[in-house]
Amino acid sequence: MNTKTNLMLFMVATLSILFVLTVSIISQSKTPAPGSVVFDGDAAINNNIQNNIDSENAIVENSIDNQVNNGETNEIDNNVLNNISVSVDVTVKNDISNQVDKDGKGSNGNGTSGGNGSNNGNANEDSNGNGDSETPDIVWGVDSASLTDDELLACVRDNFGNPEVWGRYLGDKDGVSFGLTQEEVELLQSNDIQILVIWNQFNEPVGFDKGQSEASAAIELARDFGIPEGVALFANVEPIYPIDDQFILGWHETMMESEYNSGIYGIFSPSEELYTAYVAAAEQDSSIYDEMYIWTASPNEGITTEANAPAYNPEFPEGGLIGGWQYGIDAETCNIDTNWFDGNVLDVLW
């Protein structure tokens, strides 16, 4: 009798221990790693991290890990903002991971604003909340009327900075500018520099027919030169030129009927004829606001290095599609002008 009792007690104790171990293992398997969030079922997740740092040196590491299982509808919104004013050295690392088993939508945003007044950030989105492309807010670049060779490229890099965009003219214009060559294209693109294509083969941009004819000539030469479809061709309107709304309408209409995109360069100050003509044209054809890229030369802040470039502050008509800002003209060291180019124009450069 005692033997049977002892055996039963032993079995009960063993089963109790096994039960406790099983519960413990299950609990551990469902415990998320530090810094992670795990959801079973539908989930709406909003993570916001903001770091405000003002010091000589800084190392910032932000990590977000979202794991969503079994939900039919999941929404994930991750935002990381680092406001950093550091005079010596800064290291920023943002790690965002979304693991979603079912249908989900989400966005990851991360930005870093520096103490020089500019803001460099990116926001990427796809169907599962993981971004796979990055478009910078602005990039620094130059334009030049001179032929671009190794010497000029080295001059710019040694004295000003590393341009990501280089504006060049399509076709020669006597006494004004040399036209882009195939050798330049190879040199610039092999150095990961995109080309902004400029058309300046006119002096009197007045009238609808003139706008059409100049656009047609630019399109023909672009095709002959091998410029791919989707690239924007910028009409170069100098401040000494007369300009009217009809020229802009003719240029834009003809350009948008082709395989190329429409662009225009000039001083877009409210006191300039170009500004008035653009607004008048856009009032007649609202697609100009949405489709014509503006490369403005206003305000003129003067030539600088990339490191000392002014905060991005282009002047252009409200509602217009800004493509870039030529903030400084006629450098003495190299024959260039200095620019900030908007991230939205990068898709229509060569």
Rank of each mutant, 00 (worst) to 15 (best):
153 L>G: 05
166 W>Q: 07
340 W>L: 04
219 I>G: 04
322 I>F: 00
41 G>C: 08
315 E>N: 12
81 L>A: 14
87 S>N: 13
300 N>R: 13
232 A>W: 05
341 F>C: 07
349 L>P: 01
116 N>G: 09
58 A>G: 14
331 A>F: 06
44 A>S: 13
153 L>E: 07
239 P>I: 03
164 E>D: 14
116 N>W: 09
221 L>W: 03
61 E>V: 12
198 I>T: 03
324 G>Q: 02
341 F>D: 03
223 R>Y: 09
44 A>L: 12
39 F>W: 07
147 L>P: 00
307 A>T: 14
117 G>D: 13
76 I>C: 00
90 V>M: 07
322 I>P: 02
69 N>Y: 15
348 V>C: 02
257 E>N: 09
329 I>M: 14
119 N>L: 13
14 T>S: 15
346 L>A: 01
228 P>I: 08
215 A>G: 01
174 D>G: 15
162 N>Q: 14
33 A>L: 11
3 T>D: 08
50 Q>P: 00
104 G>L: 03
136 P>S: 15
92 V>F: 05
12 V>K: 08
45 I>L: 13
312 Y>S: 07
62 N>V: 10
158 D>T: 11
105 K>E: 15
119 N>W: 13
206 V>H: 04
125 E>G: 13
134 E>P: 00
207 G>K: 05
187 L>Q: 03
110 N>E: 14
297 A>M: 02
95 D>W: 01
310 P>I: 00
233 L>A: 06
311 A>M: 08
209 D>E: 15
147 L>C: 10
177 S>N: 10
90 V>K: 07
140 W>K: 00
42 D>E: 11
194 Q>D: 14
52 N>M: 09
296 T>E: 06
175 G>A: 11
62 N>I: 09
14 T>K: 08
289 Y>T: 01
165 V>T: 02
317 P>V: 12
154 A>F: 10
121 G>E: 10
196 L>T: 05
117 G>I: 02
254 T>R: 09
324 G>P: 02
207 G>P: 10
346 L>E: 05
195 I>G: 01
54 D>W: 11
41 G>L: 06
326 Q>D: 05
156 V>T: 10
187 L>S: 02
59 I>M: 11
180 L>K: 00
334 C>L: 12
67 Q>K: 14
50 Q>H: 11
198 I>K: 04
38 V>L: 11
183 E>R: 09
